[in-house]
Amino acid sequence: MSARVAGFGFLALAAIALLALVPRLGNAYYLALAISLLQYTVLATAWGMFSGPTRYVSLATTAFFGVGAYTVAVLGEILPWPLVLLIAAALGAVVAAIVGLSTLRLSGVYFVIFTFGLTELIRQLVVWFEVNKSRVLGRYVFVDITQADIYWQLLGLAAAVFLLGWLIARSRLGFALRVIGEDETVAKHCGINTTFAKVALFTISATVMTLVGAIMAPRWTYIEPSIAFNSMISFQVLIMALLGGAHRLWGPVLGAVPLTLLFELLSARFPNTFTIILGCIFLLIVYMLPRGVAGLFEKRSTTPGGKTTQRVAA
């Protein structure tokens, strides 16, 4: 077992070392594509870390991404870069904890709607603040961060997320989340503080998303709320994670990579009908691959959704 883990860890390190060489290729197009791939890989994996085991569908990805990006827009020129990232992460965590505490008692569809509304709410708050208080709508981001820096930071974050996800999956918290995903009532009767477990993971996942937003922000030289809080990101990440399979740590990446490439292609070719195509892809995935690509690799599948096999006493 531990030999397997060591072998796997070695492979992972080798892969990271190889991937770290991408900026050395000196091709700006490939680097930009690689950044997109990493961005969505990290976002989708972070999404799956929470939504996979708990089966709560969150559309708040954009909200946290935007908080991160906007933090950079406001503080990027004033403070040293590591401190900016730290503040962004802290802000994301605080927002996530508050949102989690107030909404994770809700179930299912209410949570989806709330998280979608949250993005709009935060965006409007930022707009209101900028217009009425700071009297600027839109800010220039002049920080000394190159595309290669962005790439390396995302790569580091990706490695950290996979390591963290792996550790959580092996922990008592990870097991608790799986039990919650199976049956929340049973989870409570097993002594699981379900609210704490859900808020904790939601916060971890949101902090990662916030960091992605912060790291990506220097890519734009000009940021305004509609750029930072683009709700398309929430939907794209959701589709990627579902395509890959959110019930496995390595699932979302299987969706993030092909779909990022596809979206890249489609948004360039069909800028106007892009969202319609996105919707169709989403429907196809849900119908054809209910357990995602990861489900195809699993030897045997237990009944999806599980509860259908329940029999009722006479």
């Binding site: 008592r172 097991f175 608790a176 799986r178 039990v179 995903g181 199976e182 049956d183 009532t185 049973v186 989870a187 097993c190 002594g191 699981i192 237990t302 009944t303 599980g306 509860k307 096999t309 329940q310 029999r311 009722v312 006493a313």
Partner: peptide, 21 residues
């Protein structure tokens, strides 16, 4: 009353859920 087990887990994990927390 309507039996509730954790369908996506095996028997060992089901019982583990009862004692792990």
């Amino acid at each position: 009353q309507l039996v509730r087990v954790l369908d996506g887990m095996d028997c060992r994990e089901n019982i583990k859920a009862g004692l792990a927390f």
